[in-house]
Amino acid sequence: MPRWGMVIDLDKCTGCQACVIACKAENNIPFSSPKEARLKRIISWMSVLPVMEGEYPDLRERFIPRPCMHCDNPPCVKVCPVGATYKNREGLVAQVYTQCIGCRYCTNNCPYTLKYFNWYTPEWPKEMENYLNPDVPIRSKGVVEKCTFCHHRLQKAREKARAENRRLKEGDYVPACVQTCPTEAIYFGDLDDPHSLVAKLARGPRAFRLLEELGTEPKVYYLTEGEWHG
């Protein structure tokens, strides 16, 4: 049973946000309006956080692409009263939209604040409905959503591999953000497979995880040289 995880190399990230747009395109994430954006209601399963240190002219900046951490010990799953969010056997923290009652307890208990709520019924201009991905549902108003590691791509990849009578191999299944990253700063794979690239990178000296001290055991690792300053 694989344990899917992601490794993001901050030394390679140029903050271009291709991952952000790829995610929005892949997952039918509605765009906001200026008014909603002012209320910070932009839904962005993947977002790039800028972290700036120092003062003019001695500055350092890092860009932290932040998908769902798919924690092995997910605080959001614990508190869900109806089991709409749960961790499956492959370690994916899933959100079942038809089960969600919209209490937003999970959003509040996520220390990474990366779960999003549908404040309104998502809408697109008629023309833009054409580009919606038919593999991914449109979330209704009032439910919580978040990065799924594009697990619909896993379903398809697995199906393809099986149809071709072979095992799923590394690179068959990658989320949309990983697929597009121009600098190949995002890696994806099975953390339990000791030979996989992600497992090797996650064990490397540059690896760290966000808010590791909380014991959430995130499956998203970051790589950076030097000391990490959150």
Binding site: C16, Q17, A18, V20, I21, A22, A25, P125, K126, E127, M128, N130, Y131, Q179, T180, C181, P182, T183, E184
Partner: peptide, 17 residues
């Protein structure tokens, strides 16, 4: 095989209302 955000967002050019 990689693409920048502008390339990704081509859909919003194509289907721009």
């Amino acid at each position: 095989g990689r693409l920048c955000p502008v390339g990704q967002a081509g859909l919003q050019v194509l289907y721009n209302p």
